[in-house]
C-alpha cells in the first residue's frame, strides 16, 4: 500500500511539474550542425562519444549535470579547428534499460532512470571565409 501511495505521489509530481528527462543541448563556440560555406573535406576527422545521463524519480530530478555540451567540449579540437556535421542522439539504451528493470522490477524506473546521450561529428580545419 505504501509503495502504491509513493508511486502515485511520484506520478502526480511528474504530471504537475511536466518536465521529465529534459536534456538541453548547447553547442560550444566552434561546433555547428551543418557546415560552414567554405567547408573543405580535406583533413576531416570523424569522432563520436556517448555517456549516460542520470535522473531520479522517473526523469523528474536530473542528478548528473552534464549534457551534450560538456561531451563536445571534451572534444575541443583546438585553435583553428571546428566541429561540423554534428549529430546528437538521446535514447534509452540497453544498459539504461537493465539498470531500471533490475533494481525494482519495472518500477526501478521511478527511482533511477538513466538515458544515453551520444554525440558525433567531424573535426575540420576552420579558415575564415576560406582564406
Amino acid at each position: 500500500m505504501k509503495a502504491r501511495t509513493l508511486l502515485a505521489a511520484l506520478v502526480c509530481a511528474s504530471l504537475t511539474t511536466g518536465c521529465l528527462f529534459t536534456a538541453r543541448h548547447e553547442l560550444p563556440a566552434n561546433a555547428v550542425f551543418g557546415k560552414f560555406p567554405e567547408h573543405s573535406a580535406a583533413g576531416e576527422r570523424p569522432f563520436e562519444d556517448s555517456g549516460m545521463k542520470n535522473w531520479a524519480l522517473a526523469g523528474f530530478v536530473p542528478w548528473t549535470g552534464w549534457g551534450s555540451q560538456r561531451m563536445l567540449e571534451e572534444h575541443d579540437p583546438g585553435s583553428g579547428l571546428r566541429i561540423e556535421n554534428l549529430a546528437i542522439e538521446t535514447r534509452f539504451g540497453t544498459w539504461d534499460t537493465i539498470i531500471w528493470v533490475f533494481p525494482g522490477f519495472f518500477y526501478g524506473y521511478y527511482l533511477w532512470a538513466p538515458r544515453t546521450v551520444e554525440v558525433s561529428g567531424s573535426v575540420v580545419h576552420g579558415q575564415a571565409n576560406g582564406r
Binding site: F33, G34, F36, P37, L86, A87, R91, F92, G93, T97
Partner: peptide
C-alpha cells in the same frame, strides 16, 4: 532498447 530515441542532425548546406 533504443526506445524514445531522438536524433538531432542536419545534412544540408546551411549552418546552425
Amino acid at each position: 532498447s533504443g526506445c524514445f530515441t531522438v536524433r538531432h542532425s542536419y545534412e544540408g548546406d546551411h549552418l546552425l
